[in-house]
């Protein structure tokens, strides 16, 4: 640990002071990022009055696992998780298919009005969603999508941001790879399926995960379009729970904790790719 902390900085008597300072900073970052989640999980184990009791104590007097059990026994919770999971999976898969195809076309093919199409696609990124929130709702209600899971999937599936991101990656693939296949008589579409898609594993993980997360965490759009309590997504379940059972803070925290476990598991599985992708999506 100390070895690692010291890194590439020089030697000398000041080194240990520096190491201690860095260690303090590292601890600060760990506590600041992880503590709220830990606190949420621990509060989920508390009696309802214990959560807000003064003086404040970190650990509960008795670990009340019943909170978690009670939430898991709530059919509304299970239903919300099921709906949200279905939405997020279909959203991510659909987005990958639609946007990777578009990204390939913009990266590799020449066609009529290419520039116009590109400007239109990229232009959609600059439209603040608040300006079209209302008319988007008009459109989905005219298409009879309200209170159906598709209303959370279809509208944001085609995404200029994702097209741009995947295209960046495709532009970096050397064209010599596909030239061999083209000489062998493969079509442009086959090149996409046989060369680009297999090479896209990493980028698909990054893109798919960010879309999955967006689907899992969606709230405001769901508030507008999923008005039927039977169709509530998990975020709506949480705010509704808070509204109806205001004093049950222990239970609420248990529900919130359970709602983040799936995304945390996914995050830790794909952590390396996601962190890499976050940096790529930023500026370059």
């Amino acid at each position: 640990m100390a070895q690692s902390l010291r890194g590439t900085t020089g030697k000398g008597p000041r080194v240990w002071g520096l190491v201690a300072f860095k260690l303090l900073l590292v601890a600060g970052f760990v506590v600041a990022t992880v503590f709220p989640l830990l606190w949420m999980a621990v509060c989920g184990l508390k009696e309802k009055n214990e959560v807000t009791r003064t003086p404040f104590k970190f650990f509960p007097e008795v670990f009340k696992w019943e909170n978690y059990k009670q939430i898991l026994d709530d059919p509304a919770f299970i239903r919300s998780i099921g709906i949200t999971f279905t939405v997020a999976i279909l959203f991510a898969l659909g987005s990958l298919v639609v946007n990777s195809m578009a990204a390939y076309v913009f990266a590799r093919l020449e066609f009529i009005f290419k520039r116009v199409a590109w400007v239109v696609v990229i232009g959609t990124m600059f439209i603040p969603w608040m300006t079209i929130l209302l008319t988007s709702f008009l459109v989905v209600s005219e298409l009879h999508l309200v209170n159906k899971i598709w209303v959370l999937i279809l509208p944001a599936m085609a995404s200029a941001g994702q097209i741009f991101f995947i295209r960046q990656f495709y532009l970096g693939i050397p064209s010599s790879l596909e030239e061999a296949a083209l000489i062998d008589g493969a079509s442009r579409f086959q090149v996409f399926l046989r060369i680009f898609v297999p090479m896209s594993k990493g980028i698909f993980v990054v893109s798919g995960m960010s879309v999955f997360l967006a689907g899992w965490n969606t709230y405001v759009w769901a508030v507008i379009t999923m008005s039927d309590p039977k169709m509530y997504v998990i975020q709506q379940y949480l705010t509704q729970f808070r509204g109806e059972r205001t004093t049950e803070l222990g239970l609420l925290m248990a529900a919130a904790t359970l709602s983040v476990i799936p995304v945390l598991i996914l995050y830790f599985i794909f952590q390396r790719q996601i962190v890499q992708g976050a940096r790529l999506s930023g500026f370059k």
Partner: peptide, 26 residues
């Protein structure tokens, strides 16, 4: 060379999606 048919075929889902759910609402 231009590949108009294939290009617009593969772009169709994205263009249709953006048209219905972004451009038309705008």
């Amino acid at each position: 060379r231009r590949h108009n048919l294939l290009a617009y075929g593969m772009l169709a889902p994205a263009l249709i999606g953006l048209s219905i759910f972004v451009i038309w609402p705008l």
